[in-house]
Design a protein around this nucleic acid. Structure first.
Lengths: 155, 155
DNA sequence: CCTAACTCATTTGTCTACAAATGATGCGGA
DNA sequence: TCCGCATCATTTGTAGACAAATGAGTTAGG
């Protein structure tokens, strides 16, 4: 019914600017899909992608300062503030002052954080799986590799 | 300098959960790159990726209702509200009531909206170009195609 | 022709995302 | 040694992203 209207979109070879061929647009779409799958599978634990990423990074490091965590998980300082605050409120991490550098706040998982993370990791693998479902195994590998190339540029 | 710390991240074949190999994580990264390039090139016009997408879609359709626009640009109703509000405030679109359906609000570009959009489109192409810069032409095509496959599922 | 189910715009609330500014602290070089 | 510059955490402000709820309006089926 409404499908007819859709065809008014600029088609592939058309002259003008085709929004759905621009990287930013399709990346946004793909990212929406990924977070949607994440919410569906992780919803029952009430955790967000960023909160999960933070837990993983904190555990991998043992102990990190907030800024360090931000660099590892690609969050800017303001965003880290929020994420860390919520993890702290939920009692998943321990926050302590760095004796060697009074500017720093050190973060580490406490036992409930570690326990939760261990429950979550297998689910996170399912999230990746389901997100990538429309692609063949070969294509999945290609996609991840191409996306990771955006990283090298450091910037 | 700090590069040494980075190697504490789980390496490729390691046992545990490797965050940087999960789709959601790399998609988020890639999307960050795209919006960062967008801001850098579009900053001088003070426009955001979503606002630009909305302008394109409104022009392509001629006139759209808000919900329709949301479906075309993949924004939910609450997000559309904000974007449309800002475009209206800046005087780029015209908002009128639909005579046939009193629930609906119709949107269309006014002359300044159209004029701005025409200035912006060539810049938007540069945004895509620069974003994709780390990849070869061949890889760029592959990436876009793979990303667009996430769309077909309709979901 | 009437009502139940749907659609539309809108609000509220939570969570990313980032720019820009701030004050406290640390550090390197003259 | 001390002074400028960098780094750290933090705040404020704007904008996307979405869930959930609401009331007005439309449509389809009985």
């Amino acid at each position: 019914m409404t499908a007819k209207k859709i065809h008014k979109q600029k088609a592939y070879g058309e002259v003008g600017y085709a929004l759905e061929e621009q990287v930013g647009f399709v990346l946004r779409r793909a990212h929406q899909r990924a977070t949607s799958v994440f919410q569906r599978l992780m919803g029952e634990w009430d955790i967000t992608p960023l909160q999960f990423a933070a837990l993983v990074k904190i555990r991998d490091e043992g102990r990190v300062s907030q800024n360090q965590l931000g660099r590892l998980a690609y969050m800017d300082p303001a965003t880290v503030m929020g994420v860390v605050g919520r993890l702290r409120t939920r009692g998943l991490i321990r926050v302590l002052a760095d004796a060697n550098d009074k500017r720093r706040t050190l973060l580490m998982l406490n036992s409930s954080g570690l326990e939760l993370l261990e429950q979550l990791e297998p689910v996170a693998l399912k999230v990746s799986e389901q997100t990538l479902d429309p692609l063949s195994k070969e294509e999945q590998k290609t996609l991840i590799e191409l996306l990771r190339r955006f990283d090298v540029t450091a910037e």
